[in-house]
Design a protein around this nucleic acid. Structure first.
Length: 291
DNA sequence: ACTATTTGACCCTG
DNA sequence: CAGGGTCAAATAGT
């Protein structure tokens, strides 16, 4: 059962989104009456309206995916009782603790773990803590490398839309066209030190670029070693460079993405960047004059 | 009391 | 049907 405080938070969030959408709609209406208003500003307003309502829909849990998964019939069928009764929980192994420490600055909540066929190590599934409160759909998968147990492969799926700024985060969010999990862009960086990783980035990026052109990518994979505690600061700096939500000024990722026609949104603070919406908007750009 | 993790069950896709 | 992804009850941690 969901906590009451969380529900209140969600409702407030929905209210904010809906009111924001309403405000933007009003501004759009005024703009449309103004012969000097630009197409760009109208586009931006509509983008904001769509985003607000999409946020609200997600918070309501009424998006298509949630509805499909949570239909009453299905809820009746599932999870009535565990067959084997109460289970024993094992303590998190030291290695797993390290995995949990692979902090990229965002708040992640583990929601699953699976043994992967052909891999020695299980894959952990994490989603953004703000999934329900802010509708953030960011997900990542963490798996210890079979080849090098000191390395972890981290796959990021979907961008953060929760606008939670890292203490170290600057101002940009990268958005990528066509946010489909099946389109994979892998950026592998498996090294023992930050310096080496930095050194590696360019080559790895160039390789990735090929993939990207071939696959019309979206999701990004990183692998990195378990750096020692004294390197945490360095690692944080590294993640600033490598994270999918990395900053525009430093990000090799940004260069990569811009080279592949990705768009870079100015600030997460003023634009939570629903890439799907941007896609829609981009596709229909020619039609804006009709509005 | 509340939040986070673990893990068996279930669903979806190929 | 197998494998991967997700859900949510049970449990642990704070």
């Amino acid at each position: 059962m969901k906590e009451e405080t969380t529900l209140v938070e969600e409702k407030l969030g929905m209210k904010d989104d809906l009111e924001h959408g309403k405000e933007l709609a009003n501004r759009l209406m005024k703009d449309l009456k103004n012969p000097f208003s630009s197409k760009e500003s109208n586009k931006s307003l509509i983008s904001g309206i769509l985003r607000s309502y999409e946020n609200a829909i997600v918070m309501l849990g009424l998006d298509q995916q949630t509805l499909k998964r949570r239909s009453p019939e299905r809820m009746d069928q599932r999870y009535k009782k565990r067959k084997n009764g109460p289970r024993k929980l094992t303590y998190v192994l030291e290695q797993d603790k390290k995995e949990l420490q692979l902090d990229d600055g965002y708040c992640w909540r583990k929601y699953g773990q699976k043994d992967i066929h052909g891999s020695e190590n299980p894959r952990g599934y994490y989603r953004c803590t703000h999934r329900f409160t802010r509708g953030c759909l960011a997900v990542k998968q963490v798996q210890k490398s079979d080849a090098d147990p000191s390395c972890y492969e981290v796959k990021y799926l979907k961008s953060h839309t929760c606008n939670v700024n890292l203490s170290t985060t600057k101002s940009s969010v990268v958005s990528v066209p066509k946010e489909e999990p099946n389109n994979v862009h892998e950026l592998h960086v498996a090294e023992q030190s930050v310096d080496i990783i930095k050194h590696m980035k360019f080559e790895e990026t160039m390789l990735s670029l090929d993939d990207l052109e071939n696959k019309n990518e979206i999701f990004r994979t990183f692998s990195f070693s378990n750096l020692e505690t004294e390197n945490i600061t360095g690692r944080r700096n590294l993640m600033e460079n490598l994270s999918p939500t990395t900053t525009s000024e430093s990000g090799i990722t940004n260069e990569l993405l811009s080279a592949s026609s990705a768009s870079v949104v100015n600030s997460p603070a003023d634009d939570s960047c629903f890439t799907s919406l941007e896609n829609i908007l981009d596709l229909s750009y020619d039609d804006w004059s009709l509005i």
